[in-house]
Design a protein around this nucleic acid. Structure first.
Lengths: 351, 351
DNA sequence: TAGGCTGACTAGAACGATTCAGCAGCGGGA
DNA sequence: TCCCGCTGCTGAATCGTTCTAGTCAGCCTA
């Protein structure tokens, strides 16, 4: 038997396709008896209801929003920040029956392009059937974002932008950096290392970065703020993508290269937690020998007694969710409050 | 200016729409010069590439797989099992450039239906544009699963089924239950309480369930196995959906109703962890006063020194991922190994 | 009885792309 | 010289639905 469509079912029942459609989507447009008859026939003939693809094409709406988490989808799931963000986001969108599409951002096989960001393959967002998109931990001028804009997909980013036509929900990353910088400066730290994430594959060796290499980084403003508020030198190190493991790798690199500063700042809490692990493994006292500080205040930061900058991650997700499903397309900007949280991992710089 | 489509771009360039399509999808079908010319014109005229909806309708493939996690999407993110499963799943699918669609399962507003499961609204899976679907923590005969089958969507479930036409990746839940039962029996426990999840809203009060009420439960086999291997009585209690909080609620209910057994079995590790918290809050010794045991062996089970039944969650996600994207549609079944992990939360029954 | 209104249903045109069969034109082998 | 096959491109059909603009019969009102 041929595939059942709205047309074949209509033919079988001797009614118009439009009526079948109405039976499913607008019950008030036809008599209850006929509707019952149609639904019964659908059941009997095995018509599974309107096809999603056809429906979406015609209606011009997918009832789904996209989330681009980071270079590798699978990394995101081990990132408490991403999880908490997603929780807030999903609370809002699921309330409206909207689905969430998580898209991979494959690395292009042969990369002869100039910039780092260009290396990622955005076909997934090109082919994705979504009404709106949000990107996390990616700069607002990332190719994926540009493509979304070009495709006419509502875009909500998570970093401050001066463009009044863009929607975003963000914190003042520079101010956050300043908070940490001032705190460390007041404690006498003049030699600081910053742990950043890079989109290097897992297990990459630690390495030192030039400030210029930070361009691609979504959180570059944090480093800028830190630098601004700190009288001493700031070295930038990375151990790979955003994870505890990378924090450990980067910190171990510092230790192995005899570059141990008096304070280590993880650009995210997980990186800072990784630093704590590496230091513990080498029997170094925190904050006696080294101070450690993070950003974001994820749940485990509290457990680990990590000094950090709090931001309302869950709220952020909710706000983004609201903007994503908002039918009125006027761009909106939301700046969320942050606060410095002093805990036990920072102390006076050793002499 | 009118919206750019493949047709308008073709007209502007004086070529056929087919050629535009080929320029994007089959570069070998046209000369490199023309392809360049087309791509350049697209850039200049602001054509964002083929529209996703039209493309999907025509090709009959969405390049996306769906995941139905549980009653509430947002709950799933706080469930380490789901996260680990998703990690494995995403590793596989992102490798193929396939997106993951997380779908909500809204509760229907007015429920006059007979069964519990019927109460959930499956419109999300009806409208979802996906090639395959997997369901987690939901019985294989859940309406959502039935609908997926009817729609001709490949379905991969996570519980054993005798139907040779169905694909699944699962463990032997009954055997897992037996393992726990035998362990507890050998320690002299004759009075056991099982903590189960129900799809009740968050913050529901604890309550006792009849065995008959377990029908809807995906993990009913675990209870059956447990009962089978245990000589004593087994009481079933719930505090709501699968979460630490529910475990606490259910355990508190036991304490408040003077029904404290010698052993508490959480049907998942998070429920067991909740039990541990509730017991600690009441200053009860584990395993001195009460033994506690879980299922699944999530990462925190190890940290909490919780006795449990190990299953390869990450592998499970990977296997499901592979079956989801497998183009050859022959159904496949995968039974994963399990092992009992005795840790510190179980001990001899007190007299 | 004419005119207007309402409720129930329909015809047919989009929506935007992909794909298959096919058709020029051209170079080369026999 | 003839014919074959190849490259590069096109025309038209198709995917399955929804929506707009109706038609039509029946009923109420004046």
């Amino acid at each position: 038997m041929a595939r059942m469509t709205v047309k074949t079912l209509a033919a079988a029942l001797g009614v118009s396709p439009a009526t079948i459609s109405n039976a499913y989507n607008r019950p008030d447009q036809l008599s209850p008896q006929l509707r019952e008859r149609i639904l019964a026939a659908a059941e009997e003939l095995g018509y599974p209801g309107p096809d999603a693809a056809g429906r979406i094409l015609r209606r011009g709406r997918a009832d789904a929003v996209g989330v681009l988490l980071s270079e590798r989808l699978s990394y995101a799931f081990s990132d408490p920040f991403a999880i908490e963000f997603l929780t807030g986001l999903s609370e809002v969108v699921e309330e409206h029956g909207i689905s969430i599409v998580l898209m991979p951002l494959a690395r292009r096989a042969a990369g002869s392009s100039a910039t780092d960001a260009d290396q990622s393959d955005v076909t997934a967002v090109r082919h994705a059937n979504i009404d709106a998109l949000t990107i996390l931990s990616l700069p607002a001028d990332h190719p994926a974002a540009m493509l979304a804009r070009a495709r006419g997909i509502r875009l909500v980013t998570t970093s401050v932008s001066s463009d009044p036509d863009s929607s975003w929900v963000a914190i003042d990353d520079c101010a956050a950096g300043v908070m940490v910088g001032e705190h460390l400066a007041s404690l006498g730290h003049r030699d600081i290392a910053v742990l950043v994430e890079t989109n290097q594959p897992a297990g990459s060796p630690g390495r030192r970065l030039d400030a210029a290499e930070l361009g691609y980084l979504d959180y570059a403003a944090r480093v800028a703020g830190l630098r601004q508020a700190t009288p001493g030198q700031v070295m930038i190190v990375s151990g790979g993508h955003n994870s505890i493991e990378s924090g450990t790798t980067a910190t171990t690199w510092l230790l192995d290269h005899d570059q141990l500063p008096t304070a280590i700042v993880g650009l995210s809490d997980v990186l800072a937690l990784g630093a704590l692990q590496a230091l513990a493994a080498r029997r170094l006292e925190v904050p006696g020998d080294v101070s450690v500080c993070g950003f974001d205040d994820i749940a485990t930061a509290k457990t680990a007694d990590l000094t950090t900058v709090h931001q309302p991650i869950h709220d952020k997700g909710q706000h983004v969710g609201r903007l994503l499903i908002d039918p009125e397309s006027r761009p909106r900007q939301v700046l969320l409050p942050i606060s410095f949280v002093r805990r036990g991992t920072t102390g006076p710089a050793p002499r």
